[in-house]
Design a protein around this nucleic acid. Sequence first.
DNA 1: AAGGATACCAACCGCCTGTAC
DNA 2: CGTACAGGCGGTTGGTATCCT
Length: 363
Amino acid sequence: MGKGRAPCCDKTQVKRGPWSPAEDLRLITFIQKHGHENWRALPKQAGLLRCGKSCRLRWINYLRPDVKRGNFSKEEEDTIIKLHQTLGNKWSKIASHFPGRTDNEIKNVWNTHLKKRLTLKDDDERPKGDESKESSSTSSSSSTSSTIVSSGKRNLEMQKNQGSSTKKTRILENVKDSSPREASNQHRPTKKPKELSSSSISSNNSNITNSSQIDVSKPEDDQIGSLLNFRGLYDVHNSSEEVNKPEEITAEIPLESDYDFWNMLDSLSYLQSNEIQLENVEAFQISKFGDAYNIGEVDQNKKWLRYLENELGLDVTKDENQESSLKNAAETLVPENFQYNMPLKPAEVLPGTIEIFPLWPSL
DNA sequence: AAGGATACCAACCGCCTGTAC
DNA sequence: CGTACAGGCGGTTGGTATCCT
């Protein structure tokens, strides 16, 4: 290997931690325009204070248009288990069998669900009193399921908590998924999360697009032009007063040139607040679908912008009814007969499977 | 109700591999 | 062939929501 590598970036000069929606926007916008031929140079070119690796990871795992979020189906989980038996911890190889799934996600699912499930299974099949031989490690370096072990205490906890499924990202779980842990959890009302971190929000935002494979490393405007059609939302060339005129606002998002824009976006309480409610995200997402579908575009933009005004404190008349109506308005943006393949909202809000995907042309 | 324990997952870290020079 | 660089991969960590006592 030689003399080792220099760090990919100066850790003191880059931002770390959860991605803000503004950063996501910036990354998406940049890739939309320029592709990602050089991750290392990308942050600088895009005006992001992030490590190139971090950008890549963010894009690969959350922002790319074909990423599939939500629950793993029983079939998927079974397949993961089988593949893991043959491939070991080759998460990327395993992930290659699941279009839209990321190695990171599969790895997490394995570590948090499947490994434990298998451990429990092993425990059930093994004669009692045999536990002491194992549980030396939870090492993920084990290459087959038969070697997977876990601490006894954790196993017990796992048995008790196997069905726990109310965390923030659970709200994104696919309605049609009916894996055992969901099934076992159906008696438990799904709680609305009190808050969503910016990271969660941005992850959710990333769900707005989903598609078959697209090579965004080669930007093609006609392919991805609608990826980020935030018409008017963040056009700070318009004053706040002009927010009321969405139909006059262009779809252009300032990228390299307008740093004030991004700074403002970063500073917006709406975006940075940890109190962004799920509805916000949904409306945000669906609003963009509205653009994609070109359905009542102007009208819906107005509604969405009113919603934003509320969130930004530009409209003092905010009340729950309005919020609710805006949400409903946003929901109507999605054609009833449209099929999505990723969850947009929690099961209790939107019955039935919603499957996306319209923004990318199928290849 | 409070606080500790646990589950979960996004993001980071560092090593490995491939490639260009 | 050696070096440097970039991308990719797998393991680990930190933050937060939820559960439990």
